[in-house]
């Protein structure tokens, strides 16, 4: 069986006038199913670019990105949307909940785009909310919740479609350290339950919660290995 994520010499260039910005420079790595990987780097290191590509929000300029063995670079917008919908659960720094919808409706959004019927949608959303301990609040709006609770809703939303990959972009960035730890604990328990989790962060202490670290600088992979290796440079908080 093939690896879940395979980057083969992935490059991403941005053209700004006459300048070409190299955001990813021949990045190669493989992530197997069931891993908990942190992609670490300072701003400008190319980690956001990698996240966008892993999340199928963007495609590589050069190189190949295989997700579940499928070459994502050759897919059209609609097929990318389908992959995002079915295979990837996003967790964002700013939670990115829709303010006009209640919690259940927020969690239902991916299922709605997947074409799941109304009754089943609601049942699965309530179940996902229950899994993060927020079932009793499903009628609330996001702005009635604390940051930690909102992030738990976004985790429920990421899980509801049963994706093969959880992609968390600075999930603790907007939270205080205590709630941040809670969120990380949830991610770890998800990983222990067999899910693949990819965590994007600039913070080494948070990256240390993962099993494996891929460190990026200037668009290149400078370290790829287990967490206990001493960090070479990079941010420290």
């Amino acid at each position: 069986m093939c690896a879940l994520i395979e980057f083969r010499n992935v490059c991403k260039y941005y053209y700004m006038g006459d300048n070409t910005v190299v955001a990813a420079d021949h990045v190669s790595f493989t992530i197997e199913r069931g891993e908990f990987v942190a992609i670490v780097g300072q701003s400008g290191s190319g980690k956001s670019t990698c996240m966008n590509i892993i999340g199928c929000l963007d495609v590589p300029t050069e190189g190949t990105y295989l997700l579940n063995g499928a070459d994502v670079g050759t897919l059209g917008k609609n097929e990318l949307a389908e992959i995002r919908n079915e295979q990837i659960g996003f967790i964002f720094q700013q939670y990115n909940l829709l303010p006009k919808l209640n919690l259940a409706e927020n969690v239902e959004v991916p299922l709605m785009y997947a074409g799941v019927g109304k009754a089943e949608r609601r049942a699965r959303a309530r179940k996902a909310l229950a899994d993060v301990g927020l079932d009793d609040k499903w009628r609330n709006r996001p702005n009635q919740l604390s940051g930690g609770q909102q992030q738990r809703v976004s985790i429920a939303r990421a899980l509801v479609g049963d994706p093969s990959l959880i992609l968390a972009d600075e999930p603790t960035g907007a939270l205080d350290s205590k709630t941040g730890k809670e969120v990380l604990a949830i991610l770890r328990s998800l990983n222990e339950a067999g899910r693949t989790v990819v965590l994007i962060t600039h913070d080494n202490s948070i990256a240390a919660q993962a099993q494996r670290i891929i460190r990026l600088a200037d668009g290149k992979v400078i370290y790829d290995g287990p967490v206990d290796e001493p960090p070479k440079g990079g941010g420290s908080q």
Partner: peptide
Amino acid sequence: TREIGIRKSLGAKERY
């Protein structure tokens, strides 16, 4: 715009 971005990241096709 942000709502549209969120919806798209969650799998909304252009058609939707």
